[in-house]
């Protein structure tokens, strides 16, 4: 049976940028974007798109992608389209800036209500910037639908999804009634690459843009105004960084010297 699916994708600073390029501006409590490193779709969200695409491959369906933010880069947010998603809806406005898990989940849930018909909503297990892992569960709660978090496999049949949920020492197989929300983890496997055909098709597609009023959002509940978690301080932990380099005439000798060094320091 074809599935109606929605995937929430967040644009974030590239989490794999070299750690040395990471800077915080303590005055504004904000991260300074590293120059020359473009933002990306949060990696787990790409895998959420992949989870939806696998279902679409096997039984058909439609995938609508939702991204919330301001000044979203079209090349970045269109990536799910070039992977094979069908539609892109952007919640894009200044008013969405500075939000937290609450205001973000609220706006996304209202957008999903406006889309109306859906069987499955996918999110990443956590966004690679604030690493909160709350928005998925929050959307499910606001929509009153069941959720399964940290999935590594999702299959649908007979109005139900069967989900493998990652736990510390293995996984659980969970059956959930539809509609449901599922958050996806990297154990799902790599997201597919965009094809050339996909990139060309995506270039032609215009995203739909919803301002707060389009989805009947209460202005006091969105962006910075709707925050329930107050950020007091953002800072970089100090690293001591005094590594003693052990050398030798050959790599093998360096290895043996390392063992001797560890013995000397009573580490082994």
């Amino acid at each position: 049976m074809p599935m109606n699916m929605i995937v929430c994708c967040k644009q974030v600073l590239d989490p794999e940028a070299p750690p040395a390029s990471f800077k915080v501006d303590p005055a504004s409590n904000q991260v300074v974007p590293p120059p020359g490193v473009p933002p990306v779709i949060s990696p787990f969200d790409e895998q959420a798109v992949e989870a939806a695409l696998r279902i679409k491959d096997s039984q058909g369906g439609k995938i609508t992608v939702l991204s919330l933010g301001n000044n979203l880069l079209r090349d970045v947010v269109k990536k799910p389209l070039s992977m094979g998603a069908d539609e892109l809806v952007l919640l894009e406005d200044e008013a969405y800036e500075g939000g937290d898990s609450w205001s973000t989940a609220y706006a996304l849930a209202m957008a999903i209500k406006k889309i109306g018909e859906f069987d499955l909503v996918f999110c990443g297990r956590q966004a690679a910037d604030w690493d909160a892992g709350q928005v998925g569960s929050g959307i499910a709660e606001l929509l009153g639908i069941p959720s399964v978090t940290v999935a590594r496999k999702v299959e649908v049949a007979d109005g139900k999804a069967t989900v493998e949920r990652v736990i510390a020492d293995g996984y659980q197989v969970i059956e959930v009634t539809l509609p449901a929300l599922i958050t996806v983890s990297n154990e799902l496997g790599e997201a597919r690459y965009a094809t050339l055909k996909g990139i060309m098709a995506a270039a032609k597609k215009q995203p739909t843009i919803w301002k707060p009023a389009d989805i009947e959002l209460d202005p006091s509940q969105i962006g910075a105004a709707g925050r329930r978690a107050k950020l007091l301080k953002l800072f970089q932990p100090v690293r001591e960084g005094k590594c003693e380099m052990v050398e030798g005439d050959s790599p093998a000798e360096a290895g043996a010297n390392l063992a001797a060094k560890l013995r000397e320091a009573k580490v082994i």
Binding site: V246, E247, P251, G255, L262
Partner: peptide, 24 residues
């Protein structure tokens, strides 16, 4: 970056460093 967190380090190909390290 791991050397910024490490207390001891060896720069080299692990395939050459590790057998001698393990043996020692």
């Amino acid at each position: 970056n791991i050397f910024k967190e490490a207390r001891f380090g060896v720069v080299g190909d692990w395939k050459q460093v590790l057998p001698a390290f393990t043996a020692k």
